[in-house]
Amino acid sequence: MSGTATLVLLETTTSNLRSASLPAISAARKLAQVNGGPVVGVVIGSGIAAAAQDAARYVDKVLCCDNAALAAALAETWAPVLVAAIKKIDAAALVASATSAGKDILPRTAGLMGAGMASEIVAVIGAKAFRRPTYAGNALTDVEVLTPVVVATVRQTEFPPAAPAASAGTVEALPPGPIDALGSEFVALHASKSARPDLTEAKVVVSGGRGLKDAQNFKVLEELTDLLGGALGASRAACDAGMVPNDLQVGQTGKVVAPELYFAVGISGAIQHLAGMKSSKVIVAINKDPEAPIFQVADYGLCATWESTVPPLIAQIKTVKAAG
């Protein structure tokens, strides 16, 4: 039998909790209501004492596994730490946001434990039952985990970012046990820098597709993006053509977004793209092809070229904003 605690993997910098983990805390709190136990965070890394304190503002307790050999988020070294954390607090569940790290590490943890896992849950139905999208979001599937310990990743767009708890939790050191990367080694992160908000957290996303034709043409989308304080996105076609970096891709490969307002400009709307943006509150499609599938999910469709629409769109939004 397992206990009642809900464990949540919290990703951090050396000083702060990452906002990407806030939705996982919300999901963990929901699960804790059913499990009846505390929400315990686990932070892993090197030189993360300050981050552990920051994370403790959100949970009842933080287990902090701080070791120079754990600086890189390698599944080979982090998954055994998560297993140790589960055992230490006799957790009923382990959750994490479905970030690239969460999606890499949690299944390995489940595999080490022989625990059942639900991927990218969008709702907690019960202590062991979850709702999750399947078939590229064309179905919602309810699953029940049959093992004593439950593992789940959380789709970030479907749970609100958690606010700090009324009182901060305690921080407790978690000894890592033997660390063996099995020869895996982090070499480098080639990060793309952007002053814009994170795609997954932005209230407005402006995405361009094949119809933009050229990297240069994204400039006008960037202007629209910045006017709305949003994040820039793209379809696979635009990334593959080298118009924008790959990490702007929205879809089954790439990021899942659900902003208040999503602009799809020159994007036809392949299933793989729709899988990443269909949950957006308001979808605007601008495409010159009246048959483009994107119009089937758009709240507002404008059948025209981006050249003839985006510049006047920018001008008119400016006017509306100026009028308050």
Partner: peptide, 26 residues
């Protein structure tokens, strides 16, 4: 270790509208 209970179709988006101009869109 994981049992599928049921599937359902995602909530349908309400039918969108085509707008004729940038003015109407804004």
């Amino acid at each position: 270790l994981v049992k599928t209970l049921r599937h359902e179709a995602p909530p349908a988006r309400k039918a969108g509208v085509k707008v004729a101009s940038v003015e109407e869109l804004v």
